[in-house]
Design a protein around this nucleic acid. Structure first.
Lengths: 342, 342
DNA sequence: ATGTGATGTGCACACGTGTGCGCGGAAGGT
DNA sequence: ACCTTCCGCGCACACGTGTGCACATCACAT
């Protein structure tokens, strides 16, 4: 950050005080038109770039939103962050991004960094934080919103935006049960225990109400340190229950991996096995076969978080938001009922 | 940004000057052990969070790197930004992110925002900037590095990191020509005219050296405002040259779309048509069939940009970097020579 | 007793910007 | 001619932190 031209420099050249320059550039009313024009011309000529750091220090806000995200290369979080960024751009705010793997300690550190940087608000995506961590964060009063947090927040000042994972599991179960399937598998992930449990619970509960016995539902979870798509491939390879005709996957990445895994085993999707994913990634529409999935409104997740955060920043009270998923039926799931094509 | 505890507050409670508090917390040598310990305890008790804004103003640097990216949801740029972030995290720097669609005006505005924020350096990814824009940016002396810029930089102070697109086209051509293909198509994109031209030129030049006539190479480009994967699907549908047995696509997204497009037309890949992509996205390995592609070292692209930027920030001279792509042969390309499996 | 050096702390200023208050002058009314 | 009002501008301070210099104290050697 080299030495640059300041309003003092402009003031010296214009023969006025820096006060006048500041007012002229900010559009203050009581500055004569001639002076204002001269200063504007001078600022342009001298290549003046206002110092947002000094402005922030004086004005006690930064017009910056901090975001903590587990993995920026993940296409799902990418869409969510894009939703956040859309609102930021519309509000003339900047985005300060910190990555923090899948690790509470790193997330905590990232949040503290953002607090030091005095961002106006923080959005934590895919939080792994424990209640104890949240209490520590809460001491600093920076408004904070959590998206798809893995643990329920025990906070009075912070808010959260979540997808209704249980309802998503219900949708998948209802879809597959209606197609006539009798024996099921669930491919989950230990990486996100909270949402994993909610989705599988909604799934199993609903299957039971459709008259499926619990013993007909086989549940697997892949390790936390393995990439989702890789995990899906492995779990498909490792599935040894011949009666299974329908698989519900924790997310699309796992489902896409499973697609490849079953194909490698010579099992045809959807003719021998139906697969349902979760998320609706951009690519899921173009897989082979195109993936039936429970769609999350990804951009809306980010936008909603921003609106809640803005309300918090304004000092008003606001409620948590729960967004509802929808089922998108494509070609990876098929009816077992003869003569009945859906 | 609410009123918070400052070093002045701590100083008052400790009965010393704020100077001493500052020195104690920064680990200055000549502070007595007792005072240092007392201040550390007090800072902790009072919940002191250092104000990075004030520090930046005083120290004339922000430990922040600005990044301008066209689309954060794009899995390719996601990987590149991840590479940037890795280095930032290792250097205790933050990432200030601005999105700027595929539009020179927006990119220009984003860069100016970052300059106002006094970031230590800027990385512009997928730049569409004209030489005139670059000259304007250059007035402010913020070190800047361009990744995969679409136009050649005419700048003395800025640097760039690019992939050798021409060599990538060569790789694809050599691969397909060796497999015995005689008639080709190229699926490109108008969205990124610079790299598109380099890739197709390398492709065609090399085919010609393999004895293929130019009339046997059919070239198409999809509109700039259409999503790549969608464009690939459309171009595959629209391809009416029955002799074509090999398609080289500008990138993997187009290739994945083409895969789906050919499948919808009942054309088998690779048995009737071989397809080669460019980028090596994470998902390309799991498509059906797995995609043969020219791989870009995505994370390395970001890391290299950061290293060059760091050198620039230190005030040293440094050269542009050109990274070489590699071909990854998977199952979407096949030999036409009977009895000769590669 | 005095000089010398090391140690611990504070004063005052700087970074670049915004703003409350006041002051001089012009305009307008009596 | 005098008072009031309004306009245009500057002084001085504030935001929170870091640092050069000076100063006080103490230990130690001369």
């Amino acid at each position: 950050m080299a030495r640059r031209v300041s309003i003092m420099d402009i003031a010296a050249r214009a023969g006025v005080s820096h006060t006048t320059v500041s007012r002229a550039l900010r559009g203050h009313t009581r500055i004569s038109a001639v002076v204002r024009y001269r200063i504007a011309a001078l600022a342009d000529e001298m290549g003046y770039v206002p110092n947002a750091i000094a402005q922030s220090l004086k004005q006690q806000h930064t017009s910056t939103i901090g975001v903590v995200v587990s993995d920026m290369a993940d296409p799902f979080w990418g869409e969510v962050v894009k939703g956040i960024d859309d609102v930021c751009a519309a509000n003339d705010q900047s985005l300060l991004l910190h990555t923090a793997a899948h690790d509470a300690a790193q997330q905590l550190k990232a949040i503290q960094r953002l607090q030091q940087r005095r961002v106006d608000g923080i959005i934590v995506v895919d939080s792994q934080l424990e209640p104890r961590d949240v209490r520590q964060i809460e001491q600093d009063a920076t408004p904070t919103v959590f998206i798809n947090s893995q643990r329920t927040l025990e906070s009075t000042s912070f808010r959260s935006v979540t997808i209704d994972n249980y309802a998503g599991g219900e949708l998948a179960a209802h879809h597959l049960a209606t197609l006539g399937h009798q024996t099921y598998a669930y491919f989950g992930s230990h990486k996100r225990p909270g949402s994993n449990l909610q989705r599988v619970t909604g799934f199993i509960d609903t299957l039971v109400t459709h008259g499926i016995e619990r013993s007909k539902i086989f549940r697997t979870e892949c390790d936390a340190d393995i990439a989702d798509i890789e995990g899906g491939y492995t779990m498909a390879q490792a599935l040894h229950e011949p009666d299974v005709t329908a698989v519900f996957c924790y997310n699309d990445a796992i489902a896409l991996g499973a697609l490849a895994g079953f194909r490698a085993k010579g099992i045809a999707v959807p003719h021998q096995i139906s697969i349902v994913g979760f998320d609706d990634l951009a690519m899921s529409r173009y897989s082979w076969p195109p993936l039936t999935t429970v769609a999350q409104p990804k951009a809306l997740l980010g936008q909603t978080a921003m609106h809640i955060l803005a309300t918090l920043i304004d000092g008003h009270a606001v409620l948590d938001a729960v967004l509802v998923p929808t089922l998108i039926a494509r070609d990876s799931s098929m009816s077992l009922l003869k003569g009945l094509r859906t």
